[in-house]
Amino acid sequence: MMDKKPNVVVIGGGTGIPSILKDLKDEPINLTAVVTVADDGGSTGILRKLLGMVPMGDLRNCLSAMSTLPKADLDLFEYRFKNNDKFLAHHTIGNLLLAAALEKDGNINNAVQDLCKIMKVNGHIYPACNQALNISAKFTDGTMIQGESEITAAHKSIAKLWTSDARGNEPKALPQAIHAIMNADQIVLGPGSLYTSVMPNLVIPDLGEAVVKSGAQVVYVCNALTQKGETSGYTDADHVKALNKNVGHQFVNYALVNDKKIPANSVDFKKYTEYSYQVKTDPEAMKQQHCQPIYKPFLVMTDGDAVCSGKMIANELMKLVNNK
Rank of each mutant, 00 (worst) to 15 (best):
V221M: 07
D238C: 06
A180Q: 13
A242K: 02
N183I: 01
S157Y: 12
C129A: 15
V198K: 03
K156Q: 04
G192A: 01
M119Y: 02
Y220G: 13
W162Q: 01
M199F: 02
T140M: 11
T163V: 14
S149F: 08
V247E: 07
V188G: 05
K156E: 01
H179Y: 12
A159W: 00
T226Y: 08
K213P: 04
P175C: 14
G147Y: 01
G229W: 05
S232L: 15
N169E: 07
N253K: 11
Q250E: 12
K160R: 15
G233M: 02
D238K: 08
T231K: 10
L161E: 05
L225E: 11
A154G: 08
I204T: 13
G248S: 05
T196Y: 04
A242D: 03
P205V: 07
A128G: 10
D185M: 11
P200T: 14
T226N: 15
V247R: 09
N253V: 02
H249W: 12
V257Y: 05
I204D: 10
K117F: 12
E148M: 04
P171M: 06
P127V: 09
I158R: 01
F251S: 06
K117Y: 01
H179M: 11
S157I: 02
N122T: 10
A159D: 08
L194W: 03
N258S: 14
Y254P: 07
C116V: 08
T143I: 05
N258W: 07
F251W: 03
V203M: 05
G192F: 07
S193W: 00
A153I: 10
